[in-house]
């Protein structure tokens, strides 16, 4: 509980900075709205204002900035606007909306609940594929010299290609062979999440020291006994750490995969928000994505704590 103080302090500082930043960011829109409402602003025409610096506009019109935090289509919507948007597009839409779950029996395709579900499905599927593949690769790398030499460099190279450039190609290729829906996004998620799992798992499987390995040799243990009784359990702390990184990367992958497709999901919401200048919608989707990531990392953390405690390795 003594962590709460610092956490709240940091959040308050961020929120305060955000509100302050919203003033210069939104000054153009605010002044235009104020002018329309009959307030005198300097300079008094939009073109001249658009050429002026943000801060000079702020200081020339200190009295006309009241609307900075409620202006429509703000460059930087303020925190309460984003929170309102989140509320409207989750609870309000589902409970009161015509298409919401209460009135229609299924989630509204305008609600973030629905879009979160779409993203989450692809994230989890991609994560399972990526983590499974990553673990298998790691086992191969640790047990085979050839794989150690050949796979690792490619795994590293794979992560140097910007995913935004690669994602559309993956989607196009998969669509052209008849794979659509959730799968292309899951593939992108898997592509991002296998890497931290490979790296962490290789390190974990190699973590037993010489003495622990020699001990098994004195028992004339087989390779598979060495794996199941020594290497695998020793790798668990490493595995969980990389799974946490992996699932966050997986969410990023799913969102990136939703950008070009526009068939639902948080990524689609972000892009349509930016098409239509609905910055609140972008921020709301962003926040929900962050919350999802935090939740998924927390779930893995919980499984980790339970597993390691059962194994007697809790710290």
């Amino acid at each position: 509980m003594n962590k709460l103080g610092p956490v709240i302090t940091v959040i308050l500082a961020i929120v305060a900075f955000w509100y302050v930043a919203a003033v210069p960011m939104n000054v153009q829109e605010t002044l235009t709205a104020a002018e329309r409402a009959g307030v005198a602003v300097t300079p008094d025409n939009a073109r001249a204002r658009s050429e002026a610096g943000r801060w000079s506009l702020v200081f020339q019109n200190l009295d006309a900035l009241g609307g900075s935090w409620s202006v429509d289509r703000a460059r930087l919507p303020s925190p309460h606007q984003v929170l309102t948007e989140i509320y409207n597009s989750t609870w309000d839409e589902e409970v009161n909306g015509r298409r919401g779950i209460v009135n229609s029996g299924s989630f509204s395709n305008r609600s973030l609940v629905y879009h979160s579900g779409v993203t989450l499905g692809a994230t989890v599927l991609g994560f399972l594929i990526g983590a499974g593949f990553g673990i298998l690769l790691a086992v191969g790398i640790v047990y085979s010299r050839t794989m150690d030499r050949s796979v690792m460099p490619w795994a590293i190279v794979s992560q140097t290609i910007p995913i935004v450039a690669l994602a559309p190609m993956i989607i196009v290729v998969l669509y052209s062979i008849g794979i659509g829906g959730m799968m292309p996004k899951a593939v992108i998620s898997a592509y991002l999440s296998f890497f931290p799992v490979v790296v962490g798992m290789v390190k974990g499987l190699r973590s037993p020291d010489h003495m622990q390995l020699d001990l098994l040799r004195t028992y004339n243990a087989s390779k598979s006994q060495g794996f199941w009784k020594l290497r695998l359990p020793a790798s668990m702390p490493y595995l969980f750490t990389s799974l946490k990184i992996g699932i966050a990367a997986s969410l990023v992958g799913a969102i990136v995969g939703e950008l070009p497709v526009q068939r639902g999901g948080l990524g689609a919401r972000m892009l349509s928000g930016s098409y239509y200048g609905q910055t609140e919608q972008i921020w709301a989707a962003l926040f929900v994505a962050a919350i999802l990531a935090a939740l998924m990392v927390a779930i893995i953390g919980w499984i980790e704590a339970r597993t390691l405690k059962r194994m007697g390795m809790a710290v």
């Binding site: 003495m211 622990q212 001990l215 020594l230 359990p233 020793a234 668990m236 194994m311 007697g312 390795m313």
Partner: peptide
Amino acid sequence: QAAGLYPW
């Protein structure tokens, strides 16, 4: 030389 018990 060291006990080398498996911690898990």
